[in-house]
Design a protein around this nucleic acid. Structure first.
Length: 483
RNA sequence: GGCUCGUUGGUCAAGUGGUUAAGACGCCGCCCUCUCAAGGCGGAAUCAGGAGUUCAAUUCUCCUACGAGCUGCCA
């Protein structure tokens, strides 16, 4: 039997990294064994739906490379793939009524007020267990209510005795008392199915073999199992995933800012790095590798190695991983992604390629570029103290001496390429019989005005060019003379 | 409150009835070096606690603690 998984997001906003990881694992489980991956839109909550959400889903799937075989925009034989369209076709109501026929579900006409009165507060939390009030309505009463146009919901009928068990491929066997299970709503009063019901019906109809979802559904899965049993359907394999949390070990929230895929991309992260990183949140390969392309993940992904405990989303490690991707990225793509940041701070005519080359091993995310290259644009107003460096054995006296001696040499020098500069300056250093640092520390300080820079004096001078380099050296000489 | 799940360094994690308990990020140090990176080398740091089973428990069982999730006409 062909493995089929599905990603079933609700179009309510940006895609959370938790949801994205679920999508990723669903994709990998299917692809690893040559199975099929389906995208289904669960828009049964009309209140939370918002317009652009669908586009976000399509775009995210596209950018992360999670291609699906069937979905709203990829017709298959299980359509439609949008639940609101399936509502229109009457699919859920039909199955709900089947359950009513079997006595596995029932009409409920309880008002909001009555439901409200069922609520009790325990330990500061409001809880409500439906009392099966409407289960005992007679056929005639139900028909009368229906004829009168009374609003209704359809509830699942779960007995108060016995237990329900299921086997989860990650968490093992789980059993709960039926009495703990509420008679959940299957069809809402607006005629839409609840997530719980639509999920079971669609997973069955779409021949989903592996239901992969977050841990938060683990404790309600017995209700689903009862639904499968009520229909007489074979339940799928369940794969519940450990939660992803923030540093405080709480479920990632939309407010934390770094938690959606789009937010991360906006912050300068590379889609592949994000995918790579989240793949490792809750799963690890057999070997010790950590850098995987999507293709390699498909190859390596053995879902039985998913672990049970929640994982903290660590921005620091994501940044590191992004840096690894930057370092190995081919230059053209790197340039395309990085250049905008260079242009943000540099408005002069400089060799952007040379600057970009310097940055490639020095950044983790693209915005890091900005603060590292500002000195190319303009020489900062630095402190003369910077010329004094104990380890380099430099101070304001010998720095001044070096710069003054170097100035005429550099004025004469026409070729400001890296190698030429190195040759001429090394020649000076050798003749003077001093360490490189004695010459290069003051030089670098003068041309950059910074304590630390990407690249050294040669690289910086090559990029700045003769005129600007000399101008900066003269400024350095002035500073040193006046101290 | 009830139910369900979880607990290996700060974080991601491997692993097993007997191991010096991998590896990665981060941190610290050293090397390289004109600075910063990159790269190389090294270091500190972990089996939540308590009983039990056993010759032996991080590993198996139970209890406790802690954490999380669910307890919606949200998904």
């Amino acid at each position: 039997m062909v493995v089929r998984t599905r990603y079933a997001p609700s179009p309510t906003g940006r895609m959370h990294v938790g949801n994205l990881r679920t999508a990723l694992y669903e994709y990998l489980i299917a692809r690893h064994v040559g199975g099929e991956f389906v995208l289904r839109i669960e828009d049964t909550d009309q209140e939370r739906f918002f317009e652009g959400a669908l586009d976000i889903i399509y775009r995210t799937m596209e950018e992360t490379g999670l291609d699906y075989d069937e979905g709203p925009d990829k017709p298959g034989d299980c359509g439609p793939y949008v639940q609101s369209e399936r509502v229109t076709e009457g699919i859920y109501m039909k199955y709900a009524k089947m359950l009513v026929e079997k006595g596995e579900a029932y009409y409920c006409f309880c008002t909001k007020e009555r439901l409200e009165s069922l609520k009790t507060t325990v330990a500061g939390k409001e809880i409500m267990l439906y009392d099966k009030h409407c289960l005992h309505l007679s056929k005639e009463e139900i028909q009368a209510n229906l004829d009168a146009g009374m609003p209704f919901v359809i509830r699942q009928n779960i007995p108060n005795e016995g237990t329900t068990s299921f086997f989860d491929d990650i968490y093992g066997e789980i059993t709960v008392e039926n009495a703990e299970l509420d008679d959940m709503v299957l069809i809402k009063s607006d005629g839409y199915p609840t997530y719980n019901f639509a999920n079971v019906v669609d997973d069955h109809l779409m021949r989903i073999t592996h239901v992969v979802r977050g841990n938060e559904y683990l404790s309600s899965t017995p209700k689903y199992i009862r639904l499968y049993q009520a229909f007489g359907w074979e339940p799928p394999v369940f794969v519940h995933l450990p939660l992803i949390t923030d540093e405080e070990h709480h479920k990632l929230s939309k407010r934390s800012g770094h938690s959606s895929f789009e937010d991360l991309v906006e912050q300068g992260f590379i889609p592949e790095a994000i995918v790579n990183y989240i793949a490792l949140l809750g799963w690890s390969p057999e070997d010790n590798n950590e850098i995987f392309s999507l293709k390699e993940l498909i190859e390596k992904f053995d879902y039985t190695r998913i672990n049970k405990s929640p994982a903290v989303f660590d921005m620091v490690k994501l940044r590191w991983m992004n840096g690894e991707y930057v370092k190995t990225m081919d230059y053209d793509r790197y340039k395309e992604m990085a250049l905008p940041y260079v242009k943000q701070v540099i408005h002069k005519e400089l060799d952007f390629d040379k600057i970009l080359e310097l940055m490639k091993t020095r950044i983790e995310i693209f915005p890091d570029i900005c603060e590292k290259i500002d000195f190319f644009e303009e020489l900062p107003d630095y402190d003369v103290e910077m010329y004094t460096h104990k380890k380099m054995k430099t101070n304001s006296e010998n720095s001044l001496e070096v710069l003054e001696e170097l100035l005429p040499i550099l004025e004469k020098q026409e070729d400001y390429s890296l190698d030429a500069l190195r040759d001429v300056i090394t020649e000076y250093t050798v003749k003077k019989e001093v360490k490189n640092g004695v010459v290069l520390w003051p030089l670098r300080t003068a041309v950059s005005g910074k304590q630390s820079t990407p690249g050294g004096a040669f690289e910086i001078m090559e990029i700045l060019g003769k005129e600007e380099s000399l101008r900066r050296i003269r400024i350095g000489i002035e500073k040193l003379k006046n101290c």
